[in-house]
Nucleic acid binder design. Structure first.
Lengths: 355, 355
DNA sequence: TTGAAAGCGCTAACAC
DNA sequence: GTGTTAGCGCTTTCAA
């Protein structure tokens, strides 16, 4: 009754037999390697087509390549990473490499886990966003599998890096807020784990602190931390706003947090400026109009892919590229509402030395 | 001078040797299969730990399983799919299966390509969002690899489906707009390719047309098409608004399109209602407040994974689950501004038969 | 309970 | 230019 239960997938052997050639010949055609006559090539190609043959990647990976590039990302709900993915995907188009994405869960060891999952699958190259993975481990892994790390500011001899200049970006935001006349500027960032020195959020936090101190606003320093995502940023901001003396401006570590903060601010009815980081597509929406630091995610993702392709092609010395971010000022930041109160509460700061 | 150039990765052989057992024994421990004494198990486990051994997936896949579940998605910039991914990822946690995501490019054959890439990699199971792939091809693929299709309304004996009730959802939107008093309701949807009969967007379009006709508004039917993404929706809406008699309400095929439309509407200064579909997280943001049809993406993704796990565990009969969507009305939809003009321009419709 | 050995489907190195 | 063959690192019979 049953026709042919689970028709077996054609193998290279089947193709060779049907075409009357050797497996090696078929293999060469597949990789269009050197040493096949046009005639044989045509015959093999026709047979492949006819049998609907597709090589199993696992078998190829066991001896040769997997023609696969893996990218590990910590949070695909963050539209910045989505931009990066787009850029990477497009840059990989037509190269013969297939892209697979391994999502990492939250947590210090999760990036590590996802990376290992990719390596276990013998991807030919890896792009990863893993600020928390130890450098020595990465070095060792990168010796075997070409690797470019995203948003890392360390320098390795074995892997390339693509990062934004987080200090410059954060400086720009802070400068902008100061120029608008803000003093009680709060910083909304992620948990300690994610703000270790040298990480993007660590650098942004550092820049915030430095600018505040240098502006004589050390007493107004206020750092609020929250977990990942708009919802947690929303909740954290709510408590921030409930404090006796809420900030007049909030600098959020990235746009996702900024959007959550904005939600709380809007609902509170208070006139508080909010700035973010990354310039996700929505930041420019007229209904949102969020001041943000433009990190060209797509270009960065594409650059990472190109670096990886270079390594795949044989390059062995390490490249480190830094993208210069660009502040986009929008309506979410404006002069503080209660300007009059501005100077009133900065005790140990001489009222404008430079005037 | 060089220490050990590219230290070889430990193999099962290395572990067996170091532990003084056979490869088969190690293999059994790895899969904690039946027939290993606790003593040997402990010894092997210790050796694995010590050698930092991890099995290569390719080798396992050649004979056995890859412990990998693949999910194919057409557009990770659409936050709806991002919700689905989240749900799927969480549901897979702790099952021993690793999730890999294959992004599909736009185009009729691209979903197919991404799916094949996954099958070539011998994933143990597949979840796919491929409205455009032919059913017969899918059937054949599903005979060999467990598969659950997302957002498909066809019924197969070999694959499961998880979908939303698109007709009910679209009906709800239209009913809502009609109740508000709108007549010139336009539908913004994707290109013909994506609105084939039976596809989600095809069903939504069909429901739109049906409701319009039944409401006696056949003359006001207006369907605008655009490519994927906010930007293209924005441009399409701009031309729509430039027409002599623009609509008073726009029903967009999904929220991404709705956000683009909203951008154009806001910029135009016109008072036009906009409704979307999917209820992406941002729709509820107070600054956006987009009326939308809530499709529980995370729950749907989790359900798809559970179905797949059931198949992986042996189920062979097909399941088809439909999720009932729920309209969320928000500020982006309100009564038409120029109510007075409402009836003036509906020539061949008897003014309310049922009154 | 344990181990030996035969593959899985490819590629690569080498003969012819 | 073409074919032969030895692996790659696992799992899976099947004996012991």
């Amino acid at each position: 009754m049953a026709k042919e239960s689970k028709a077996r997938r054609a193998t290279i052997e089947d193709v060779a037999e049907a075409a009357g050639v050797s497996r090696a010949a078929v293999s060469k055609v597949l990789r269009n390697a050197y040493g096949v006559s046009p005639k044989m090539k045509a015959k093999v190609l026709a047979t492949i087509e006819q049998l609907d043959y597709r090589p199993l990647v696992a078998a190829r990976a066991m001896s040769g390549a997997s023609y696969t590039v893996g990218i590990e990302i910590p949070d695909f709900r963050n539209q910045f990473f989505t931009k990066v993915l787009s850029g990477a995907k497009d840059a990989l188009k037509g190269t013969g490499y297939q892209l697979i994405i391994a999502p990492a869960d939250e947590g210090p060891k999760e990036g590590h886990r996802a990376l290992e999952a990719l390596l276990d699958r013998q991807v030919d190259g890896v792009i990863a966003v893993s600020p928390l993975v130890g450098q020595s481990w990465l070095e060792r892994a990168a010796e075997r599998t070409p690797m470019v790390m995203f948003a890392r500011h360390d320098r390795s001899l074995h892997y390339d890096t693509v990062a934004g200049d987080d200090v410059a970006g954060a400086d720009a935001v802070m400068q902008h807020l100061l120029e608008l006349g803000h003093q009680r500027i709060a910083h909304l960032t992620r948990d300690e784990m994610v703000t270790e020195p040298g990480t993007p959020h660590g650098l942004r936090l550092g820049a915030y602190l430095k600018v505040m101190v240098e502006a004589g606003l050390a007493d107004s320093i206020s750092v609020t931390r929250c977990g990942e995502g708009q919802d947690l940023a929303y909740a954290a901001t709510q408590s921030m706003l409930a404090a006796p003396e809420p900030p007049t401006a909030i600098f959020a570590g990235h746009d996702e947090l900024a959007l959550g903060a904005l939600r709380a601010v809007v609902e509170s009815g208070l006139d508080i400026s909010v700035a973010g980081y990354d310039d996700v597509p929505l930041a420019s929406h007229p209904l949102i109009s969020l001041t943000s630091v433009d990190q060209p995610g797509a270009a960065m993702g594409a650059r990472a892919v190109r670096m990886l392709l270079e390594r795949l092609a044989g390059r062995t010395d390490a490249f480190h590229e830094t993208f210069v971010p660009m502040l986009r000022t929008r309506k979410s930041t404006r002069p503080p509402a209660n300007e009059a109160l501005g100077n009133e509460h900065s005790p140990d700061v001489a009222p404008s030395l430079a005037e």
